[in-house]
């Protein structure tokens, strides 16, 4: 864990350097369980030393960008992983935040561990201690100690990441001596698996998954791109878009609202699925729409600050759309 100390020191010194230019820094601090780190909002110099960066920093802090930009006077510093910076780029591209207001402090990333994968593997909800090494993860639970192979427990997005060492946009880049070393995986593998099933099977798959949803709206509220959560049409009475009776069908419709409102906007941080208390695989729903948008319009969100979201523009001749003739 020497490496860790190294990167923490670098982070702290960089943040101290630029602290005069910002009135608030959003970063990671120690969490209350060995599995998690905690986001922290730092507005006093003395607290900077609490900042950390390690393989558990899974939260996408860009989730605070929009709200804070409305609230905080002065500039905001944000500790970001390279993939998190996509959210900032996309928010800027849509004119939801101003680029000048943010100091993007991007940290080189060696991959992030998805604690939910660990919990699933050990079949437990709570752990006693955790030590993440380069090759092995040592985890202790009430059943005793277990050693897991680190390479299998990265967050899904890390397996197709190609920006871990060169973020698309940053103001301060903190290089990490640790590099991302994972075997690349096909981003759409799980989607293909599902699509291989019959239409009825796909239907029942979602029926079962979303039948578990408790409508806590954590998925919606954690999303950096869903800036309209307080005005969400889910809560409307007139028109009544959606019943509050949380049946599988209604829950699916809730996810469809998310999918449609994020079409071509979702930056694939995977936060929605991470925070779901019922472990529903909603990330697939988002990814699929992104795949469609990419195939139709050749667009991925969060890459280019000057590009418009495809659904907010059009071409008179669409090369990739083949209109269906019914006559």
């Amino acid at each position: 864990m020497n490496q860790n100390r190294n990167i923490n020191e670098k982070l702290i010194s960089k943040v101290s350097e630029i602290f005069g230019q910002v009135s608030l820094v959003v970063g990671y601090c120690r969490g209350n369980s060995p599995l998690k780190v905690s986001p922290c909002l730092i507005d006093e110099k003395k607290d900077i030393s609490n900042l950390i960066f390690n393989k558990l920093c899974i939260n996408n802090l860009a989730t605070y960008a929009y709200k804070l930009s409305k609230k905080v006077e002065g500039n905001i510093g944000m500790v970001l992983k390279p993939c998190d910076s996509k959210a900032i780029i996309q928010l800027c591209a849509e004119g939801l935040i101003e680029r000048e207001k943010f100091r993007m402090i991007t940290v080189g990333c060696s991959g992030i561990i998805d604690y939910k994968k660990i919990l699933k593997e050990i079949g437990r909800q709570r752990i006693i201690s955790l030590d993440i090494g380069k090759d092995n993860i040592e985890v202790e639970t009430i059943d005793g100690k277990k050693s897991l192979s680190t390479k299998n427990f990265y967050a899904e997005k890390c397996y197709w990441c190609d920006i871990s060492d060169n973020p698309l946009e940053s103001d301060v880049f903190i290089e990490n001596d640790d590099k991302l070393e994972v075997e690349k995986k096909d981003k759409y593998a799980d989607i293909k698996d599902l699509e291989n099933l019959s239409i009825e099977e796909i239907y029942s798959y979602w029926q079962e998954e979303l039948g578990r949803c408790i409508r806590c709206y954590a998925c919606r509220n954690v999303c950096p791109m869903e800036v309209c959560q307080d005005q969400c049409i889910v809560h409307l009475d007139y028109p009544n878009w959606e019943s509050q009776m949380a049946t599988a069908e209604e829950n699916k419709f809730f996810q469809m609202i998310r999918v449609m409102h994020l079409a071509g906007r979702c930056v694939e941080c995977g936060e929605c699925e991470r925070v779901c208390p019922q472990n529903i695989s909603i990330f697939k729903l988002m990814k699929k729409m992104n795949q469609v948008i990419d195939e139709l319009f050749g667009f991925s969100a969060g890459i280019d600050i000057s590009q418009k979201t495809p659904l907010l523009t059009y071409k008179t001749i669409e090369e990739n759309i083949e209109e269906e003739k019914l006559t």
Binding site: R215, C216, N221, Q229
Partner: peptide, 25 residues
């Protein structure tokens, strides 16, 4: 409280949170 994202996860898992809404459909 500033880092809270206003979701309902904590209330919905809580054994004592009893708030409810009544609706006609």
């Amino acid at each position: 409280t500033e880092k809270c994202i206003s979701c309902g996860a904590c209330t919905f898992v809580c054994p004592t949170c009893y708030c409810f809404d009544i609706r006609d459909e």
